[in-house]
Amino acid sequence: MNRPLIRTLLVDDEMLARLAIRQALAAHDDVAIVGECANAGEARQAIEALEPDLLFLDIRMPGMDGFKLLHGMKRGNLPMVVFATAYGQHALRAFDANAIDYVLKPIDQERFDQAMARVRRHWHGLQVTSAVSSTTAPAPAASPYLQRLSVQQGEHIRVVAANDIDWIRADGNYVHIHAGTATYLHRESLRHLLGVLDPGRFLRIHRGIAVNVERIREVHPLFQGSAEVVLQDGTRLSLSRRFRAQARRALGMA
């Protein structure tokens, strides 16, 4: 049974600081980064739209600091919070704000891992409490896969529903997400993204291409075991020989 991922949002006005947290989180395979925000206004919208479990939050940001962001939100809607900041003098105030932990920049991996251990203990406690407190018929299990993801679009964050994605193309440590007439550049490897998207919906058809199976209209066999996938909008994508058997099973092909 798949364990639930800790859906995490990064909030920091410095891109390099967000990158440092991403790198520190790479050692924790039970975490899925669902978005990044450069200010508190974007973070408020992303929290409401994405409902993350964990927030890595900077304190000093332009416009509104991290404390004011938390103060302005309903307590019941808040995710777990770890403050990540260069200013150690705010530690007591951070814990008064019910933060799980407080880590200083530059990020020290050992100290960061200790913070994640605290997050994990709290997370597991929330899961147990939720299970024990349920006295009615069990509700359908929440999907362990991402239902939405946030992508940077200029100075703004765009929330894209997973169901709206047509296909994805790898580009090094980035991916190009095609959704309708829009294409978004997202800082995530295809391998990691496919690890958090529903494998029943997203099918890898090439080393660098994955497609939403609901968008596939036709499959055209070609030479030497390769094939071509045609989407509902007419987009043609290569189905490599390596992934053909997997595609046949997913698409019910004889």
Rank of each mutant, 00 (worst) to 15 (best):
G35N: 05
I209C: 14
A247Y: 00
I47Q: 10
A162H: 02
Y145M: 07
H206Q: 13
A27Q: 11
R158K: 15
R244A: 14
P221G: 02
V229K: 04
A182Y: 09
A32V: 04
R93H: 11
I33Y: 02
A86F: 03
R169S: 14
P199K: 01
N212F: 03
V132E: 10
A86V: 01
R204G: 02
A179K: 02
A141F: 12
I205V: 12
P138D: 11
D164F: 03
L190W: 07
M116C: 12
T135M: 15
R18P: 05
A179N: 02
V213Y: 00
R217W: 00
L197E: 03
V34N: 04
T85Q: 06
L237E: 09
R242K: 13
G88W: 05
M80G: 07
T136H: 12
N212M: 08
S189P: 06
P140H: 08
I157F: 04
K68H: 12
M253F: 10
M64A: 08
Q152M: 13
V31Q: 05
A24H: 03
H124T: 14
Q127T: 09
A139T: 13
F95G: 00
S238G: 07
A170E: 03
L10A: 02
G180Q: 05
L203G: 05
D58I: 01
A115W: 05
R111S: 06
E51R: 15
H178F: 14
A227D: 08
N173Q: 06
A115E: 00
D164S: 12
L92S: 09
L190E: 07
L194F: 08
T135D: 14
A161P: 05
T183N: 10
L185I: 14
V229A: 11
T135F: 14
L92I: 15
H124G: 12
D65Y: 01
P221K: 06
S130C: 13
S189D: 03
R121K: 13
A141Q: 12
H90N: 13
H71M: 15
I216P: 03
Q153R: 14
D166Q: 12
L104A: 03
A131H: 08
N39T: 07
V31P: 00
P221E: 05
V119G: 02
G252A: 11
A40D: 06
A247D: 04
V31I: 15
A247H: 01
A245L: 12
L10Y: 06
L251N: 12
I168V: 13
N173T: 06
L222N: 08
G35Q: 01
N212I: 06
S189M: 07
M15Y: 10
D164R: 10
A254L: 09
H176Q: 14
L185F: 02
A161K: 10
R241M: 11
R191C: 08
I33W: 08
A26R: 13
R44D: 12
I47E: 02
R93S: 09
H124E: 15
D58V: 07
I59R: 05
R187D: 07
R248P: 00
F223Y: 13
P62Q: 09
N77G: 15
A46H: 04
D171Y: 02
V119H: 07
R75T: 09
K74Q: 10
H178I: 11
R111E: 13
L70K: 01
A94T: 00
A179L: 00
A84R: 00
